[in-house]
């Protein structure tokens, strides 16, 4: 077991959800909420706690889209590409953000860990299409310019907070 990793947070989460296999998904969700991704160290630890193999935990974590094994950015931007948003041109928004942030389909998080850019299949806010979300806050009727501006202001907000 990795000795440097502080397991007290994970212990709290595991105890809060119950040490049983059926809690695995909610435990992973809580861990991801805390760390913004699933640190590798938690896998053998969680496997022990709920008495399944580490490969089984890995198998569950990789099945669901929302889990990330890589650290995610402070701002997780999700561009909706559901039907309604798609027909109202969500792809140009995605392309613009990718070029602004230097990201691609494969590289989804900026090196400074500020932004993660993903697509999501329908947020159910079709009336406001096209939409994107930043950490679950929905932004309606987005255009490539608006999205670009939003990212810029988020960056400023983050630098401001850091200073």
């Amino acid at each position: 077991m990795n000795r440097e990793f502080d397991y007290s947070v994970v212990d709290g989460i595991i105890d809060g959800n119950g040490r049983k296999i059926s809690s695995v998904i909610s435990i992973l969700q809580d861990i991801q909420e805390h760390y913004r991704y699933l640190p590798r160290e938690i896998f053998p630890y969680l496997a022990d706690a709920v008495a399944v193999s580490e490969a089984r935990i890995y198998s569950v974590a990789t099945f669901y889209e929302n889990f990330s094994l890589e650290p995610k950015g402070l701002y997780v931007v999700k561009v909706c590409d559901g039907t309604a948003c798609h027909v109202r041109r969500s792809i140009p928004i995605l392309n613009r953000l990718r070029s602004d942030l230097g990201l691609s389909e494969r590289k989804v998080t900026t090196d400074d860990l500020l932004f993660t850019l993903e697509t999501v299949s329908c947020l159910g806010a079709c009336g406001l299409a096209p939409v994107l979300t930043v950490n679950d806050k929905v932004y309606p009727a987005v255009t490539p310019d608006k999205a670009s501006q939003l990212v810029k202001s988020l960056r400023e907000e983050a630098t401001h907070a850091a200073a």
């Binding site: 059926s22 909610s26 569950v60 099945f63 889209e65």
Partner: peptide, 23 residues
């Protein structure tokens, strides 16, 4: 139970598997 991002969980047996903490 919150889903974790899998459309297929709308299918009954996949949904119950997910509640059970499985794929």
């Amino acid at each position: 139970n919150r889903g974790a991002g899998a459309f297929v969980c709308g299918e009954g047996s996949a949904l119950t598997a997910s509640i059970e903490g499985k794929r």
